[in-house]
Amino acid sequence: MIAPRPSFRDIPLYSPAKKACRVDLSDNTNLFGVAPAAERVLREASPALLSRYPRGYAPDLRGVLAERVGVGPEAVTTGCGSDDVLDSALRAFLEPGEVLAFHAPTFVMMPLFAQVNGLRVRAVPLRDDFDLDVESLLATQAKVLYLCSPNNPTGTVLSRAAVERVVERAPGLVIIDEAYAEFAAGPGFMDLARNRPNVLVTRTFSKAYGLAGMRVGWAVGAPALVAEVEKARGPYKLTTLAEAMAVAVLEDDADWVAARAAQAVMNRERLREELVALGLRPLPSEGNFLMVPLPGASRVAERMRELDVNVRAFQALPGVGDALRIGSAPWPLMEAALTALREALR
């Protein structure tokens, strides 16, 4: 057998504990249906598309996104989900052996991407109020700093003041992951990507836009940054169908997306009330999910799977401990999850 490089041997496959369940609230995807414009594109697509490469670097989608954000197309990059953009950015700006720093807890794929790319990591715990420990993060002197707001898995948001201090003093690139921006109350940090030369803001069509199965992500940054990410990602990361669907939803279904996001937020807060009534204390959230600290969360999640409901369990998270992450969905699915949770807690 040909051996992999030593730093690659112990990398696990991404395989969170789950099984096929009637109710799956573990991935934070949009369970409110498919945008009509995306469904129309799928229905009208020509089979001839299947035998041809897509256009390189998704020019149609870049153009539409650029217009909406208020930048030129050269300031927008796309990828096979926003995690592809994140991975490409690490390859573009860090040599093997250099340091990636991020707050903890955060998106579970970041340590994995670091290991795949031969990087070292520095994880800096969030403060007790779930904001950034700015001085400790900057003290890592990492050439790339990764921030996530609303943060996955906690749902909490980072303060404007803390993020701006990091951006002003960072020695290199600051990546701000806004996969859940459409559910947040505030405006987010896209203006920093427009105005600062060292900021890359990533977003996705996998959550509010309901296109998780099509794998469409994007980012905005200074054209010089974006050009390097584009080189790292390669030309054909978006299929013709995925690009067409994303463009159609942006152009024709903005109201549909906003309405579904609002419904997810409403059901998230309704779920919070039910969990508090059970004696639980969910964290503040501006995502389409709640994180619920709960000792023995993995055992509870396994019992819930036996009852045909899948949620995500985390163990020993910094500042949180064991916890369940429960996605927001149409209320009948939330009722099924609550029924399973009550049974699992007995």
Rank of each mutant, 00 (worst) to 15 (best):
A37P: 05
L94N: 05
V34F: 00
A75G: 15
V69D: 09
L132F: 08
L94M: 03
V71Y: 09
L65H: 12
D83S: 12
L119W: 09
C80N: 14
A142D: 03
T29V: 11
N117H: 14
R40Y: 01
T77Q: 09
A48C: 04
S51V: 13
D131E: 06
A89N: 01
V64W: 11
S82Y: 01
E39N: 06
A48S: 15
Y53L: 15
G33W: 00
N117E: 11
V64Q: 15
S82A: 10
L86T: 00
T78L: 05
A142L: 06
F130H: 09
G72K: 14
A104V: 11
S82D: 03
G97M: 06
D133S: 12
G97F: 08
D129R: 07
V76K: 03
Y57A: 12
F32N: 14
V108R: 10
F107P: 01
L119H: 02
P111K: 05
D128G: 01
G63C: 11
R62M: 10
N117K: 13
E95A: 15
T29I: 05
L112D: 00
F102A: 15
V124R: 04
Q115S: 14
V124H: 01
V76S: 02
G56C: 10
E74V: 01
A75I: 08
L50C: 09
T78G: 09
R43P: 00
A35M: 06
G56H: 07
E39H: 08
H103P: 06
E39A: 15
F107Q: 06
L25R: 08
D129P: 04
A35Q: 01
P36S: 13
F113M: 02
Y53A: 14
A48P: 07
V121L: 10
F32T: 07
D129I: 06
R43K: 12
A114L: 03
E67R: 15
L42K: 13
T140R: 04
R91E: 12
P36G: 09
P105L: 02
E135V: 03
R55P: 07
A139Q: 10
V85R: 00
V116C: 13
V85H: 00
V69F: 15
A101L: 06
T29S: 12
V116E: 13
L25S: 06
T106D: 05
E39V: 00
S82P: 05
P125R: 02
F32R: 13
D60P: 02
R62K: 15
R68E: 14
L126P: 01
E135A: 14
S51K: 13
V134C: 09
G70K: 11
A142M: 08
Y57L: 10
E39R: 10
R40I: 06
A104T: 07
G56N: 05
S82N: 14
P125A: 04
G70H: 12
V99T: 15
E39C: 04
T106S: 15
V64M: 11
T78R: 14
R68F: 04
A142K: 00
A114N: 03
P59L: 08
G118K: 12
V64P: 04
E67A: 14
F130E: 02
G56T: 06
G81E: 00
